[in-house]
Design a protein around this nucleic acid. Structure first.
Lengths: 150, 150
DNA sequence: GCAAAATGTTAGACTAGTCTAACATTTGTT
DNA sequence: AACAAATGTTAGACTAGTCTAACATTTTGC
């Protein structure tokens, strides 16, 4: 068997809940993911086969060490994408949804590139100005006066 | 029934082949998508039910007017994503793969934002300089001297 | 104009994912 | 301690997508 997008989503959800609240039950996962309990059970059985969760029927769910590592990677990818979309001016709800989907498909190189981009934008001395010009361009469709120096 | 990611891919492929070569056969689609012929047949039957292709068994495939419209939208989304990834410095092969996946999941707002970004980068008078600074930053991890004016 | 090759379809199996309904276990309350 | 409520699992159905193998149709070349 193999890791799929759906399983990645389950893994990330477990990671988030475990990090935030400590204990993870089937119904927590089901609620968070807008899915019914039986779907969670089957997903957990697959994640267990993959060695990503510790889980016995009717017991609490925990990530294995491997599961934790994999989930962290997924989470990092998500964060880069989410931050990037926010930077572009996308609302947090849509940024969240899109980052959640894109995180499953973007290649490593793409994520690396976006990471560089974010760093460049955050650390560059004139980037705040650049960004406010972009915002104004988005709204007016024109390059603002005070941005001709960019 | 409903439009799925896989069907969007079939539709886009048909669009591309029909535009480039005029006539579209099952095996053309199968080859392009690295899929076997029976998968194409079932996809075509679904696309027909959705009113997106004209198709009779053993005959050539054609997009309907509606199919053409939908495919164009998908193609446009793809192009924005592809151009954006290229701009960021991602190689064309990976840019192509990622754009193909992201096109199915990115919200309209996200595409619109990236469109604005591309326009901003292409039309802004100092953007070529900005971009070459980004490239150098990517390679060296530092903000180049001649870019302090950005 | 017929036979062979190429192309396309159907049948049937398999996987991943979802659901509902029925059943099982655990928890918590009195 | 026992039963009710909450939680979790299993069984079984369904969809979308894929494949291979077998069959059907069209095209092509002699």
């Amino acid at each position: 068997m193999e890791m799929t997008k759906a399983l990645e989503d389950y893994l990330k959800t477990i990671y988030t809940i475990e990090t935030e609240r400590g204990s993870v039950g089937v119904s927590d996962i089901a609620e968070t993911m807008n899915v019914k309990a039986p779907s969670v059970t089957t997903a957990l059985q697959r994640l267990r086969k993959l060695g990503l969760v510790d889980y016995q029927p009717y017991q609490e769910v925990h990530l294995t060490e491997k599961g934790f590592r994999v989930a962290s990677k997924i989470q990092e990818r998500f964060q880069v994408l989410y931050d990037f979309l926010l930077l572009l001016g996308i609302g947090d709800e849509i940024a969240n949804l899109d980052a959640c989907e894109i995180e499953h498909v973007a290649h490593r190189e793409t994520i690396a590139c976006l990471t560089e981009f974010l760093k460049f934008m955050r650390e560059g001395p004139r980037m705040p100005k650049w960004l406010s010009c972009f915002k104004e361009f988005q709204e007016s469709g024109k390059f603002p006066e005070q941005c001709s120096g960019l």
